[in-house]
Every structure is written in C-alpha cells, then in structure tokens.
Design a protein around this nucleic acid. Structure first.
Lengths: 159, 159
DNA sequence: GTATTACACGTTACACTATAACGTGTCGAA
DNA sequence: TTCGACACGTTATAGTGTAACGTGTAATAC
C-alpha cells in the first residue's frame, strides 16, 4: 500500500494486503466478514479507486451474489462502519481504506480530471477541526474532509 | 446574521440582510441575479437550514416559477458558484451562505439529530489542508469540510 | 436595422443513487 | 426446540440529478 498518495505502486500487492488485514481485523474484533462483504472489499481494493455502489453491485452479481441494490449497499455500509472503506461524498462513491491499520480520520484528495482518489493522513487537520467544534460547543462524531482539484499527473497533462 | 453558529437570532433579519448583500454583490461583479435565482436564495435564507433541491423547487413552483428539477438545480448551482450558497454533501442539500461577505472556505457542522447546519470560518483548517495537498503535489481547487455530530441543544436534549 | 451570439429558463424524458419492506435460512442462547 | 438476532436475497419505490431541446431576450457584430 502506498504511503505517498498518487504514487505508482503494485495494485495486486495492495489488494491482497488489504484483504489480509481485513481478515485479521475481523478475527480480532469478532466482525463477521462474510463472503459478500469480503468480496465487496476485494472489488474496491482491486478497482483501486472510488466506485459507485452500482458498479460494485455489477461485480458482485458476476461473482454469483445477489443482483439487487441492497446487497451492495449493505456490504458497503458494513465496510464503512468498520473502517475498511470510506464513502466519498463528492462522487457518491466508495473506496477501500488504503491505510486500514492506522486510526483513520482521512483527508481525501479527489482529482476532478481522472477521478482518482488519494487518502492522506492528516492529524493536524483533525486537531484544528476539534478546536473549531469546541468553539461552537459542537460534539464531533464523524468528520469528512475532501479536497477537489488536480492530481500531479493531470496538473501536468490533463486527461 | 449570526457569528456564533447555533446561536439564537432573528431569521427575518438575516434573510433580508442576505438578499441585500446578494444584490450588492451582483451589482459589483455584474452577476445576473435573475428573479428565479434571487427567489431561490430567498427560500434558502428564510428556511435557514439545508434544503434539498426538490424542496426548493416546490417553493419556486408556488411562487410561479418553473416546476421541473433543472429550474431548481440551475438556480442553486449559480448561487453555489458565486458563493451565495453552499452545497452540503452529506445531506445532498443546499444552504445559504451565512457569511457571504467573507472569503469563504467554510467548515460545516451538521447536527445528525436536528439536521441544523452551522457554518464556521476556519482559516486554520484551510492552512493545514494547503499543507497536506502540497505534500502530495496536489493542486487544490475546492475544499469541502463537514463535521457530523451533535449541536449544543441536541447534545443536552436529544430531539 | 438586422443578423449573430450568448444565455437564461422552461419543458420532457431519463439516468443514477438509495432505501423500505418482506421472506428465508442460519446460528447461538434461553 | 424455540426464540431472537442477523445476514442476505427479493420486489418495489423513493429521492437526487442531468441530458437534450425549444423559446425568448438582450447585447454585440455587421
């Protein structure tokens, strides 16, 4: 798995690594990483980008799972709740967590040209958000930070 | 208009203030704040919360404007592009900008209980985001920061 | 003055995203 | 063995968003 967002790397490797991590996490926490759920994660991992629920559903269908939307949404919701994937609001899409071992309060960088999504760890951002919320007496439960712009490649050579 | 998110205040006042500001901005920048667009802003301002496009559309319809979705979406897109309103991704909704005079890179706090949305100015957050993006060689165009949790009232007395 | 262009705004029709509600099977606990 | 919880499949429908096209209007070019 890449620590450098948008850097080149071996997708096959990060996909299998992600699954291994998920299996371990499931065992540790007693999560029920059922076949559909694991398959959904695998799809996200190998796609290695944000995918819509219906796109995931298509793949699940091909693998012999159910063919109706709730099948995909339920699996994806499970993954999100357990930190194995994230929802990218801006794209109405889902992406496998690329840094599942860390305590994840990620920042997403979304290229508006090629739609690649990178996940960055940014504790500094989270700290400032805690301050902002504190000033308003607001109790934080979840945070969603998305940066839209151009990734290094598209900045140079627009797709 | 309130500087303190979630604080009590006079909605009528902040609605008219918002419209006056919009008129001035339109004049200064040569924006075409047409009747539908102005009406859409007025609806958002007086609702004083995040509203779905179809909800805005209903109000537009009642005021004699077109009744089909593109009418609302176009007016709302115009407002967002010109900083008079924001899109709240988490809720698939729109909210009038409460601090339109400031350079706005706002942070939203969304109460998951009462669905109220507050907008906070947070330059500190934006600065850290600039750093994060710089580390990844990512070019920022827009930023969306949303905090989900409980507002001061709902924290004490859940709706 | 008229042609051209740009744009706002209305329409119809459709695509995409998401959830409600219900039935069945499985598995562990009472 | 019966109950409850839950996973997962279904059907049906709700909610969100856009594409494409026609008309009117206003500013600019000729």
């Amino acid at each position: 798995m890449s620590d450098l967002p948008f850097a080149e790397h071996d997708h096959t490797h990060c996909a299998s690594g992600g699954l291994i991590h998920a299996d371990r996490l499931a065992e540790e926490k007693g999560l029920r990483l059922t076949p559909v759920r694991r398959a959904a994660l695998e799809i996200l991992l190998s796609g290695h980008r944000a995918m819509g629920a219906y796109e995931v559903l298509d793949h699940l269908k091909n693998k012999g799972f159910g063919s109706q939307p709730p099948v995909a949404y339920r699996a994806l919701d499970f993954l999100v709740e357990n930190g194995l994937a994230h929802r990218v609001q801006r794209l109405n899409a889902f992406a496998a967590c690329t840094q599942p071992s860390k305590h994840h309060r990620p920042v997403f960088m979304i290229c508006r040209d090629c739609e690649q999504v990178a996940e960055a760890e940014a504790d500094e951002v989270q700290e400032t958000l805690i301050n902002v919320a504190a000033r308003a007496d607001f109790e934080i439960e979840r945070v969603n930070v998305e940066i839209l712009g151009l990734c290094p490649s598209c900045k140079v050579d627009p797709a």
